[in-house]
Design a protein around this nucleic acid. Sequence first.
DNA 1: TCTAAATTGAGAATCTGTCTCAACTGGAGA
DNA 2: TCTCCAGTTGAGACAGATTCTCAATTTAGA
Lengths: 156, 156
Amino acid sequence: MSPQLAAMTGILKDRGIRLTAERRAILKGIHSCGGHFDADTLLDHFRRRGDRVSRATIYRTLGTLVEIGLLRKIEMGDRQSLYEPVEGREHHEHMICLHCGEIIEFVEPEIERLQDEVCRRSGFTPQDHTLQIYGICYACNCENVAGESGTAGAGR
Amino acid sequence: MSPQLAAMTGILKDRGIRLTAERRAILKGIHSCGGHFDADTLLDHFRRRGDRVSRATIYRTLGTLVEIGLLRKIEMGDRQSLYEPVEGREHHEHMICLHCGEIIEFVEPEIERLQDEVCRRSGFTPQDHTLQIYGICYACNCENVAGESGTAGAGR
DNA sequence: TCTAAATTGAGAATCTGTCTCAACTGGAGA
DNA sequence: TCTCCAGTTGAGACAGATTCTCAATTTAGA
Ligand SMILES: [Zn+2]
Ligand SMILES: [Zn+2]
Ligand SMILES: [Zn+2]
Ligand SMILES: [Zn+2]
């Protein structure tokens, strides 16, 4: 068992959350998915491996993991929500390519600071925020400059 | 007919978009809703007034108005979109109170500039962005400092 | 081991929003 | 003003993501 997985299971135990086979599988699956993933991708992952974890349990467990701070949920307006492990990673926001679906992360502390400042000015107590920039990534830009072929990829 | 409404209908005409009774009603309804609204609120508005505009037409028309730049669509994570008239208003972002549902607008040009800079650094061509801050508004903060009563209001 | 309470799974339900297609209509031209 | 047809509409089917229901199962502590 990897050290991160051990840490995660420890956190669950501390919170009095039972360590079921399904939750173990999900914790393991989260890391093998790498980066950003959605509930359905995780479900497919289990189906392919023969593990059986129901859709309901996946959604429930992902929700729980977000609640206790092990996962971050990124709500994409249209399509389904994405999740990503928090686990020591730096807080960041996302650029999403409308052409190929690529997700690019960026860190910009000054933006975070300005948000806090805006909140302070309004007497608003921030708990969470989402910042997503939609557009065309570098690779897709280059493609388009070259051969203007038909559209493909993740629309929005 | 208000001057804004006249301007809007003019824009539709210029684009060759037919001025049907339903579209007129929607244009009028948009202004009477004031501020931010969602498709269902608009639908209820019509139902109450006895006007009959189908759900399909409301969604189609809101989409059209976004396309031609008369409305802005704000995709809330929870998957229900809000709309707001653009109409000369300054570009802004939103703080949303998790307790009472209040939506507070803010303008922060420096955040916009930093976003552009981040994109430039990555060779990413931005087309659109969403920035929402979720938390507790000033009024709800004060309430809580006083009597600690049970929870109520718009959750998330 | 026993037991209460937490958890699961199958499928129904919900919630937003889109699509289909026959019926209808705005408005340009006669 | 009348005609005509492409653009529009409405009812309801459809779709995708997520949540809910509740009986059956399982965990973890005594
Ligand atoms: Zn791309
Ligand atoms: Zn990320
Ligand atoms: Zn509030
Ligand atoms: Zn606004």
